[in-house]
Amino acid sequence: MAWRRMQLLKQNLISLIPSKSNTFIANYSSKSNLYHAKVGIPEFLNGIGNGVETYAEKLESEFGDLQNLLVARSMKLKKINIGGDPKVCKHRKLILKYAHKYRLGLWRPRVEPPKTK
């Protein structure tokens, strides 16, 4: 809620500045890049976690690239035996759930920050 108010306040302030003005407004961010620049199937599965990363080689050989995996359906994953036991579909559901989020731009796999002692 507060973030939305800040965005509206920023838009209102920008609209008050004359268009011919020499005023420069910069957006600074102190956050480093915590996301993969180029995401492939292994990075995608490592980002999901929960044991799904064990299927990286199988999915790469079957689909080739991430775009083909993102449009895959449940039956295709089931046919190549993702999820181990056919009765247990936890991994298949995780892959499909995060693929949908990734397509919509709601989720990206994070790069693990280096551990310091």
Rank of each mutant, 00 (worst) to 15 (best):
I95D: 00
G40P: 09
S21Q: 01
P113K: 07
L94G: 01
V88E: 13
E57R: 15
W107M: 09
Q67C: 15
P18A: 01
L104Y: 10
R73K: 06
S29H: 03
S74N: 04
L9R: 15
L69K: 03
N22D: 11
V71H: 11
K78P: 01
K117A: 14
L94F: 01
S32Q: 12
L13P: 10
K93F: 08
L96I: 03
S61I: 07
S74G: 05
L59V: 09
L104Q: 13
S61R: 06
K31Q: 15
K87I: 14
K31S: 10
P109I: 02
N50A: 12
I41T: 02
W107N: 00
V52R: 06
E60T: 01
T54P: 12
K76Q: 06
E43D: 07
L9N: 11
N81E: 12
L96Q: 02
N50M: 11
S15F: 06
V111L: 13
D65S: 02
S29N: 05
L70H: 06
P109V: 09
R103P: 00
G40N: 06
S15W: 04
G47V: 01
G83W: 06
I17P: 00
L69P: 03
Y28N: 14
N81F: 07
T23P: 05
N33W: 15
A99L: 10
I25C: 07
E53Q: 07
N33I: 14
N68V: 10
H36Q: 01
A56N: 01
N12D: 14
S74F: 13
W3S: 11
K79P: 06
I41K: 01
K76N: 03
L16W: 10
I14L: 13
G64A: 02
E112F: 08
E60H: 04
E53C: 07
Y35Q: 08
Y28P: 02
I48D: 03
K90L: 05
R92K: 00
S74M: 05
F24A: 13
S15Y: 05
I14E: 10
K10Q: 09
L66A: 01
K79F: 07
R92N: 07
D85V: 09
L16A: 04
I95R: 02
R108A: 12
E62L: 07
E43P: 11
E57M: 12
I95N: 00
R73C: 04
S15D: 08
N12Q: 12
P114S: 11
G47F: 02
